[in-house]
Design a protein around this nucleic acid. Structure first.
Lengths: 237, 237
DNA sequence: AAGTGGTCTAGACCACTGT
DNA sequence: CAGTGGTCTAGACCACTTT
């Protein structure tokens, strides 16, 4: 076996991730043992071991010696703070991604919104979108976003069923800088409903301003269920 | 070879880490190649490879195929999420800072704590401190911290009225890496009381693991009142 | 040409879980 | 008991860098 495009163990990882993404193997389901992978994929056990071990370190699988390997429950969510694209993140965890567009409109901006986008006095209209992002049919993020029309004049015509606002903005306006603020809040009822939260369940709110070509490109409120979402990060000092 | 107290590859890691800690191998210095370790330590190359690879993942070493393995230098990096000293932060805002020491003790660590600090089976005791940090007499952070005694053996004698645990740890153990997880939670009653929170008020919880010299130095739970605390950050892309 | 890390194999022994 | 993951070995081939 082995044809160099990818290391063998990466091919094994892709094989396992593919089955998980397709839904064939759900959270909690048993994954083939190392010996089974050896037989099925004609690789050595060390190679199967490396693939499964790395997927465990990535949080995709959980393994118990003497018992077996299983698709990890996805309570352990999250990723580094610099991760910007929720769709990619969910797919990287091996889960199905879907987004509902709740709102997509041109509005007259509130004073506060104009300030956050540093708009001039004569620029009163902005684009506004509200999306709910789902991980395996469970809501993981409510994205309430205001967009500077000068930076993305075609925002209302973007097929958000196929790409996230973040992906689109990255295409039309090179990301230059990001500023964010993180808080714990009790979300307003509408947001709580979207996230399927109980009345007193807290949400993690990320406010994010992105800059492109020296301008403020967009301003977003990202709500996540406090119980199902973690923001992970790390850096070397 | 092999005498089960620790896996062989862990012993190899300890060997390398020991040389680095003692200063024998400084940042930038060349580390023995896999073949050299095979000869010196009488292990197989795969075992040497695993040890060095894991130390690279941990940020202790850097490796270049065809060249060699080297002690990574602790370089500064731009932080996505600014980690700073709570006392400094409060003072920078022009407010009075004060801390109450609620707990300062040596305890037998729970299994989970031992795992987070990557302690061996025979290392069962850790230091534990609980502090409440005040900004102008209003509680801003409850710091629940577990400390690796190997890294900070004198932790129980530190005058925390005059310096924060963070400051002390920075002094005795050069910070190498930080990992954090941010969540929104409803804190347990004891923590809520310390923060003077109402029953349904959410808290922002930061879990932080700090690394020093390739070891896990401490593990902290940092609770903040969701309504009075924000995490701000930013970075250039 | 010699050395390096990256990958891969086909075995092996172990401790542990399940039945 | 058979099955599992955790570890370990002694080889191997490769692409690459340095001499």
């Amino acid at each position: 076996m082995n044809a160099q495009p990818q290391p063998l163990y990466e091919q094994v990882k892709a094989y396992v991730l593919g089955r998980i993404r397709s839904g064939e193997w759900s959270p909690g389901a048993r994954v083939p043992s190392e010996h089974e992978l050896v037989r099925e994929l004609q690789v050595s056990r060390m190679t199967a071991n490396r693939a499964l071990s790395e997927l465990m370190r990535a949080g995709v699988l959980s393994r118990v010696a003497g018992v077996g390997t299983f698709v990890a429950d996805f309570k352990a969510a999250g990723h580094p703070l610099q991760i910007r694209n929720i769709a990619e993140e969910i797919r990287a965890r091996g889960h199905a991604y879907r987004a509902d567009v709740v709102t997509l409109e041109r509005i007259v901006a509130a004073e506060e919104t104009r300030e956050r986008l540093a708009l001039g006095r004569d620029e009163r209209e902005v684009f506004h979108s509200v999306l709910v992002h789902f991980e395996a049919d469970r809501p993981l993020q409510v994205e309430d976003r205001f967009v500077n029309p000068r930076v993305a004049p075609d925002y209302l015509n973007v097929p958000f069923a196929r790409m996230t606002p973040y992906e689109y903005l990255m295409e039309v306006a090179p990301l230059q800088r990001v500023e964010h603020t993180v808080r714990a809040v009790l979300p307003e009822p509408r947001v709580a409903a979207f996230l399927e939260l109980a009345a007193t369940e807290p949400a993690l709110l990320i406010e994010r301003v992105t800059f492109s070509r020296g301008e403020r490109a967009s301003f977003a409120l990202l709500y996540h269920p406090g119980t199902r979402f973690e923001l992970k990060g790390g850096f070397d000092a």
